[in-house]
Amino acid sequence: MLTVAQKQHFVDEGYVQIPGAIPTAMIEAARRAVNHSIGEVGMGGENAEGNRSGFFCAELLDAPVITDLYNRTPVIAMAESLMGEGNVQPVERAKPYPRFPLPPGEDPPEPRGHLDGIGNGSNGTAKGDYKRGFTAFAVIYLADVPEPYSGNFTVWPTSHRIFADYFKREGHEVLKNGMPRPELPEPPVMITGKAGDLVFAHHQMMHGACANASPNVRLAVITRLKHKDVEVVGNDAYTDIWREWAGVRDLAEAAS
């Protein structure tokens, strides 16, 4: 499903963007459901203080109008072309993720990223705990994001490989101390795109959502795809970063 060039980009950079991966009708149905929820359901659930934009649309987390964006489109087949046929678990939950603008007059700060699964005591995981619990991000834009600093899904290219080398040196147990901050060679990419675009990113990519200085709400759906053996592989994937990527492992080995 993905071209060799797309696979190579994923191996080298740690992410790949696939324009127009989702049919427009499904994107519009999802956007309608999300906008309905924003207005008629509003804030609710989760951690309102620590995760202000994340607690919208909680009732849609497992709604078919959202999960079908993955399970009934080419997304899973595309993921399988990276992770191996039959290796990708169906999506049971995906998070509609509105990111609202900053107040007028406030300058956006520079993007700041993180790795998932590292506890800090206020993100649902106890400080000192950590877990590598998924294989890939799959992000779908529900509305156009034409400019940076618009709440874009943001990645630090090549950070997956930088962290792999870092964990080989330091041991992944260093994560007990919190998010490590090794020097990264590449500046962040605030991914622009159109409604219906899909982004895959390796689980070990430093990532974030940049501040939104645009007039519009950034509308995206995010899920964390899991290899069928994710629980077995567990934290070994911090250093063996291509273990769950049968579709690109040969390219990764050739590049190393």
């Binding site: 202000r52 934009s53 609202f100 603008p101 900053l102 107040p103 007028p104 007039p215 519009n216 709400v217």
Partner: peptide, 12 residues
């Protein structure tokens, strides 16, 4: 600018 203020208000 007005739309930004409205969207900020909806979210925050």
């Amino acid at each position: 600018e007005a739309r930004k203020a409205m969207n900020y208000s909806i979210g925050a």
